[in-house]
């Protein structure tokens, strides 16, 4: 590059800077393409690995029969899929109303000081690892629960059941949903509240009719983040669910979820190639489930964002 009236030194420095700019851009492109490669290789590897079991058994049999008996070459994991749905849905049913109400209280009703401390405390709690939840529920809740159920309701249970797993997940997703909901409520402008209140609504009406809509997308993405955590949670669930491959008839029976099936069969998995392949098919199913629900969530959220704009 030649510029009149500029000394050679300056031009040299400029071209050096431009080269640096170019190189760093290329590094960035490489790094970003790593993610794409990662995503593609995920799917490819999972499919390749589960190919063995898919080619021998029909997909329908794998997905919808509930006999997981590797010793008899039966790999139906419907009970695990069923268990995953039950546990996730049940825990979300408990977690959503409680944590949203708690978040509304923290964001709208509590005085400033209380809010600051409470919300930063809950942020800290969101960092507690899931194993700790599993541990406390297993050693602190399960024995007590088992005795109490027998005493009060005459229900025989070991305590390691779908219900305990749902409770564990509920407690685990509380801080996630609460802290994100508080954040999205606090991000709304004060005018929105003032207008609504000046029209004569009570505080709860204002929250119900105005704030929930304006903060809707944020709240929904909070719920979905919690949902994703609950769906994919492995260790905490594997510790308390009892790992039994049958279709549970009540909430107080042992069951299985997709991730806990993978973990609990891990020991045998390395030696039997067929079972290994079946477990990879389980993982593929889990991945598809999570990805599809994520994409649906994204689409719904974008639609709502357009509709509920204030």
């Amino acid at each position: 590059m030649k510029v009149k009236g500029v000394s050679k030194k300056v031009v040299n420095r400029l071209s050096f800077r431009l080269v640096k700019d170019n190189i760093s851009r290329k590094i960035m492109i490489v790094c970003t393409s790593i993610i794409f490669l990662l995503f593609v290789s995920f799917v490819v590897l999972l499919v390749l690995k589960s190919n063995l079991v898919i080619s021998e058994y029909s997909i329908k049999e794998l997905l919808f029969s509930s006999f997981w008996e590797p010793e008899n070459h039966k790999y139906g994991f419907f009970s695990a899929t069923f268990g995953t749905f039950i546990v996730t849905i049940f825990s979300m049913l408990m977690a959503i109303p409680i944590s949203i109400l708690a978040a509304v209280y923290i964001a709208e009703y509590s005085p400033y000081k209380v809010r600051r401390y409470l919300s930063s405390f809950i942020d800290v709690l969101a960092g507690i690892p899931s194993v700790v939840f599993g541990l406390c529920m297993l050693l602190g809740f399960v024995p007590v629960f088992s005795v109490l159920m027998k005493k009060w309701f005459q229900i025989e249970t070991t305590g390691m059941c779908l219900f305990t797993a749902s409770i564990t997940l509920t407690v685990m997703v509380f801080p996630i949903i609460v802290s994100l909901t508080v954040e999205s409520l606090r991000a709304l402008p004060v005018e929105l509240r003032e207008i609504s209140l000046s029209l004569g609504s009570t505080k709860w009406q204002m929250i119900k009719k105005t704030l929930f809509k304006a903060a809707g997308p944020g709240i929904i993405s909070a719920i979905l983040l919690g949902f994703g955590r609950a769906l994919g949670e492995t260790m905490a669930v594997a510790m308390v669910i009892g790992s039994k491959n049958n279709i549970p008839t009540s909430l107080f029976e042992s069951g299985q979820t997709l991730p806990s099936l993978i973990v609990s069969s891990f020991g045998e998995m390395m030696s039997v190639p067929e079972e290994q392949s079946a477990l990879f098919f389980v993982a593929l199913t889990l991945f598809v489930l999570v990805t599809v629900s994520n994409i649906i969530a994204k689409v719904v959220n974008n639609k709502l964002k357009k509709r509920w704009r204030y």
């Binding site: 993610i35 990805t291 994520n294």
Partner: peptide, 22 residues
């Protein structure tokens, strides 16, 4: 890219474990 990032965020860690295991 952001969509892929979100999907990767939602992927359970057990799947990463299996991926590296393979």
């Amino acid at each position: 890219i952001r969509l892929f990032m979100d999907i990767l965020w939602g992927t359970p860690s057990i799947i990463y474990g299996l991926f590296v295991l393979t």
